[in-house]
C-alpha cells in the first residue's frame, strides 16, 4: 500500500511536470493563432514576441493557458493528447474491426515486433555460441571479445544504412535487414552475460568434476550451462530492449512505410508531434511488455530448476 502511494506520487509529479512544460513550449504558437483569430495578445505581433521569455508570455496571457494543451500540432503535446491518439490508433481500431489498418499502431507495432523477435532470436543464438567458444578457447577469448566490444562502440544509426545498402545490393530485403540490425545490438549483452555465467562455477566445483574425470563437454552440460541461467536471463532482458531499438532504427533509413520507426519518420516529415509521441510510447510499452514477459519466463524456469530461493 505504502509503495503504491509512492509510485502514484512519482507518476503524478511526472505528469504534472509534463503539463507544466507544455505552457512555455507551446505558448508562442498558441498566441500567434489567437492573434490571427482576433484575440488581444500582449505584446502585439509575433515578431515582438519572438525574443521574449516564454514564461513571461504565459504570465501575461493567462487566457491562452488551456489552449497550450489542445493544439493540433504542438511542439510538445500534452499527456492526454498522446493518450487519446494512442487509443484512437489501437483500441478504437479494434472496436471498429480494423486492427490491421495502415493507421493502426497495432499494425505498425507488429511489423516492428516481428523484426525484433527474429533479430532477438538470431542475436541470442549468436551470443550464446560466441560465449561458449570464448569460455572454451583462449584463442577465441583473445580474438573475438575485442571485436565484440568494438562492434558496440559504432553508433548504430551510422551503421544501419550501410547494412541495409549492402544487403539490398545482394538481394536481401524485407524483414531480414531489420532483424540483422536488431541482432547486432542484442548479441552483445548475451555474450557478456553468458561468458560471466559460464565462468561462474568456482574452483572447488571444477576440482570436483576433475576428480570424476569428467570431460569438458560433460562439465559444460552438467555444471557450466545450468549455472549460467540466471546470468542469461539478465542478459536477455537487456538484449530484447536493444533488439527493439535496433528494429526501429532499421526502419528509419529505408523510408519504410510500415513499423513504429516509419510512424516516427512520417510524424517528423509532417510535423505530427502527437503521432511521434504516441509511436514513442507504443515502443516503450512494447519494450516493457517484452521485458516483463521475459521476467515471467525467468521466474518459472529458475523455480523449476530450484534456483529461485
Amino acid at each position: 500500500m505504502k509503495t503504491m502511494v509512492a509510485v502514484l506520487t512519482v507518476l503524478t509529479v511526472i505528469i504534472a511536470f509534463w503539463y507544466a512544460a507544455c505552457l512555455p513550449m507551446n505558448i508562442k504558437g498558441v498566441l500567434t493563432q489567437a492573434e490571427r483569430a482576433g484575440a488581444e495578445v500582449v505584446p502585439v505581433g509575433a515578431k515582438e514576441r519572438r525574443d521574449l521569455g516564454a514564461i513571461g508570455l504565459v504570465l501575461g496571457n493567462q487566457f491562452a493557458i488551456a489552449a497550450t494543451w489542445s493544439q493540433d500540432r504542438p511542439r510538445l503535446p500534452a499527456p492526454h493528447q498522446v493518450a487519446v491518439e494512442l487509443w484512437k490508433t489501437t483500441g478504437a481500431m479494434v472496436l471498429k474491426g480494423k486492427p490491421m489498418s495502415k493507421r493502426s499502431l497495432i499494425f505498425h507495432g507488429w511489423v516492428t515486433l516481428s523484426a525484433t523477435l527474429l533479430g532477438f532470436a538470431m542475436g541470442t543464438g549468436l551470443g550464446i555460441l560466441l560465449a561458449v567458444g570464448i569460455v572454451h578457447s583462449k584463442v577465441m577469448d583473445m580474438s573475438v571479445m575485442p571485436w565484440a566490444i568494438v562492434s558496440q562502440t559504432i553508433p548504430i544509426i551510422a551503421l544501419a544504412p550501410m547494412i541495409i545498402v549492402v544487403l539490398y545490393s545482394v538481394g536481401v530485403q524485407g524483414i531480414l535487414p531489420k532483424a540483422i540490425i536488431s541482432a547486432y545490438l542484442s548479441f552483445f549483452p548475451v555474450v557478456v552475460g553468458m561468458v560471466k555465467g559460464l565462468r561462474s562455477p568456482d574452483a572447488m566445483q571444477l576440482d570436483l568434476l576433475r576428480t570424476y574425470n569428467a570431460s569438458a563437454n560433460q562439465g559444460f552440460w552438467a555444471l557450466r550451462l545450468p549455472a549460467s541461467m540466471p546470468y542469461l536471463f539478465t542478459s536477455l532482458k537487456i538484449g530484447i530492449a536493444a533488439s527493439l531499438v535496433g528494429a526501429i532504427v532499421g526502419e528509419l533509413p529505408t523510408g519504410a512505410v510500415a513499423g513504429l520507426g516509419a510512424r516516427l519518420l512520417g510524424g517528423s516529415y509532417y510535423g505530427q508531434t502527437v503521432q511521434i509521441w504516441s509511436a514513442l510510447f507504443a515502443a516503450a510499452i512494447l519494450a516493457a511488455c517484452l521485458v516483463a514477459l521475459l521476467g515471467v519466463i525467468e521466474r518459472v524456469v529458475l523455480k523449476r530448476m530450484g534456483m529461485s530461493a
Binding site: 572447488m204 570436483l208 576428480t211 530448476m305 530450484g306 530461493a309
Partner: peptide
C-alpha cells in the same frame, strides 16, 4: 577415490 570438500558444493538446480 571420492573427494569431499569443506563446502558441500551441491548443485542448487539438482
Amino acid at each position: 577415490y571420492g573427494y569431499v570438500f569443506q563446502a558441500s558444493g551441491l548443485y542448487p538446480w539438482r
